[in-house]
Nucleic acid binder design. Structure first.
Length: 302
DNA sequence: ATATTATGCAAAT
DNA sequence: TTTGCCTAATATT
């Protein structure tokens, strides 16, 4: 159940541990057998992310396109070199499942510099990637397909700018796409064609941090406010990539000021309906909008 | 121990 | 507009 920061971390990990290597690709579950056969035995050239979409580019122009959806997850395991790469092996974070499974940690802990091979697949493993140094299992993804470069371009074409790329022109493009619409900004931030990578937590938290009423229409925002929304999203999501979890409150709001100890203090409004706003004390509100729960403080965001 | 929920999206209806 | 995904954390019995 990742937002964009998790997918960018995953792309980094795939780049670190698999890029440049020939991979064995299989579908133990059996639902991706044909796609796996297309990818099997090819070299992974590059791993990239845009928003919540992950692209693994193999040689001869075949791309593994994955979207985890609500509860998809990758699990990894392997030898020392594999384990030490990027954020793999980092402490398991709430809300991220891109780290080692418990079994894999036990396996890896018993290794002495060598890699004994992947474990028997447990559960519905849609795709398994195996290199000389380690393995990755995908479960529960909403999208998992072997596609061409042209098809990948089509996927990218329907996405808005990604705050984690923040390319030149992205900020202006975001402002344009927001202000063009008469929809509530609380909905627009979740619209991947407006901005790619924001999910329900960043949506609620960034709107709170910028004191923007989620029910304001995009067209009613001025350039400055829309620009500040983009800037704060860039900052918040980059923190998420660094930390491997979404923490939108500053240390001053944590009991003891220790990130490792924070529990229920990581967010201003997300999942805090009925509780007093950390800033003004008014009860945090919640409404279902577009089949998702929107959280905001009626006192601070008006 | 069992039930509910959810950091989404696409396909089916 | 509804369903599938078929996980894993959290809530409830």
């Amino acid at each position: 159940m990742p937002e964009g920061h998790s997918i960018h971390r995953l792309a980094r990990q795939f780049q670190d541990v698999f890029a440049g290597q020939v991979l064995d690709v299989s579908s133990p579950q059996g639902r991706f057998t044909a796609g796996a056969a297309l990818l099997d035995g090819r070299k992974l050239q590059e791993a990239t992310a845009h928003g919540k979409q992950l692209f693994l580019r193999f040689d001869r122009g075949v791309i593994l396109h994955v979207h985890l959806g609500l509860y998809g997850a990758w699990n990894f395991g392997g030898d020392e070199s594999f384990r030490g790469a990027s954020s793999i092996g980092a402490p398991r974070r709430i809300g991220e499942r891109e780290t080692f499974s418990q079994d894999a940690e036990q396996d890896a802990g018993s290794l002495t510099g060598s890699y004994a091979g992947p474990p028997e697949p447990v559960g519905a493993v849609r795709v398994r990637l195996v290199s000389r140094n380690g393995w990755a299992d995908l479960r529960g993804a909403t999208t998992c397909a072997a596609i061409t470069e042209a098809e990948a371009a089509t996927v990218l074409a329907r996405l808005g700018p990604d705050p984690l790329h923040n390319l030149s022109g992205d900020r202006d493009e975001f402002i344009r796409r927001i202000r063009r619409r008469k929809t509530a900004v609380g909905l627009l931030l979740m619209d991947q064609s407006v901005v790619a990578g924001i999910g329900n937590i960043y949506r609620a938290e960034v709107l709170f941090r910028q004191a923007v009423d989620p029910w304001t229409t995009g067209g009613a925002l001025d350039d400055e406010t829309a620009g500040l929304l983009w800037d704060d999203t860039v900052a918040a999501m980059n923190d998420g990539v660094r930390d491997g979890r979404i923490v939108t409150t500053p240390p001053a709001w944590w009991n003891g000021g220790d990130a490792g100890a924070l529990d229920g203090e990581a967010h201003f409004v997300y999942k805090r309906q009925g509780q007093p706003c950390r800033r003004c004390g008014e009860a945090v509100a919640m409404a279902e909008i577009g089949a998702r729960k929107l959280y905001w403080c009626p006192g601070c965001q008006d």
